[in-house]
Design a protein around this nucleic acid. Structure first.
Lengths: 216, 216
DNA sequence: ACGCTCCTCCCCCGCCCGGGGGAGGCGGGA
DNA sequence: TCCCGCCTCCCCCGGGCGGGGGAGGAGCGT
């Protein structure tokens, strides 16, 4: 029995391309198409595909929400491959966290795409390491990163934030930086204001969420 | 010109297996072998392989340190694939953070291994999503995870820790849980003691480091 | 020389936080 | 039954923390 695939992309051209590549394989069958995320759940229920190739950026319901919706509402869900142009896309990371099984790069060779679909159907899938490193290092959620970037912290403030996020008290930071505790308090107050954080706890959270400090 | 590969593994059997699989390909050539990580850097300098297939667990110098050593000391370094038995291995994650380009599962089919080596040589590589999800979710450093596990927090304490790590004050947590602030204080004090944390800031750090709360 | 930003330090004040100790009710296991 | 762990609430107290304002010096670009 062939591997059945559902294509979800708002651009007909991309769907046509994927269909052409996949239908050329005797053991792969494209059983349906959808132009936006809202149509995915009913189609999955109806067609029961093995694999869903889903674009991330779509009108109405994006690939991330659509992935969540499918996994939440369909028992024995299909494998979901996220289709993307750039491997370092923020949305891809979010989709993977939402439960997607892997992704397809649009610029990948046809053979790669076919291979990825087959692997996904078998329970494995393809990932490219540049994206992996991105994941491991700078996978913070975009909002937190935006806050940190817009904050425009000074060098000293960044240094202090790093120490705050390491669990040091103001006195310890002062000792470490060889300045007065009053100075540290000034820096902390300043960076809290810039970050829109109420206290150091929230600043630490922001530091982790944004990837400013890396866990592990 | 063929893809050149250096094999690094302390078990001769594994080296022989990889050699047999890879040498069967006309465009792949195994140019050398090493039995431990300490021998890797000089061999890489001498042989200039395109790809290094390296075991993680080895005597003398493990795959993580060997990866760091190669990347630090060899200009225009080869692609490094970590060879492992279990995809959810902590060491694999560390190796990837150290700069490895991907990994090879020992139980993977020969064709997969060949494919991974070719992809690595081209600048891409294979990864399996189960490991990815592990990376995204539970990639906390083992020490922090151990602390959290040994802490044996009660259900209520875990709940409170989650809210502390969300940036709430004791009063807000009390309101959220519909209990008195004194009660929240008790829980917080208790979990701080169990975690060995001096204040809520350090508790939040531990929560992130251990993967108890997930960033993103 | 002027203005700007950054780093440094100081004051006062109020509050939330964390430590210590005590205590009652409620459930499960020895 | 009795004991123990968990959840709940209370007291006092000290200290670190955060907000407000002010101020001086160093470096930089104009």
């Amino acid at each position: 029995m062939p591997v059945t695939v559902l294509l979800v992309d708002d651009e007909p051209l991309v769907r046509a391309g994927l269909r052409a590549i996949l239908e050329a394989q005797p053991d792969i069958s494209v059983v349906g198409e959808a132009a936006d995320g809202a149509a995915v759940v009913p189609l999955v229920r109806q067609l029961r595909p093995d694999v869903v190739a889903m674009d991330v950026r779509m009108p109405l319901l994006d690939g991330i929400e659509a992935t969540r919706a499918v996994l939440r509402s369909v028992p024995g869900p299909p494998k979901i491959l996220v289709v993307t142009t750039f491997e370092q896309d923020d949305y891809v990371y979010q989709a993977l966290r939402a439960g997607a099984d892997g992704f397809l790069l649009k610029r990948a060779a046809p053979a790669e795409i076919v291979h990825a679909v087959r692997l996904a159907a078998e329970g494995e899938s393809l990932l490219f390491p540049a994206a992996l490193r991105e994941l491991a290092a700078a996978h913070g959620n975009p909002r937190a990163r935006a806050v940190l970037e817009r904050a425009a912290l000074t060098a000293r403030e960044e240094e202090v934030l790093r120490l705050v996020a390491a669990g040091l008290t103001n006195a310890e930071i002062a000792q470490r930086l060889v300045v007065g505790t009053e100075t540290v308090k000034t820096h902390v107050s300043s960076l809290l204001a810039k970050l829109g954080a109420r206290d150091r706890t929230q600043a630490v959270i922001l530091a982790y969420e944004s990837g400013f400090v890396a866990p592990g």
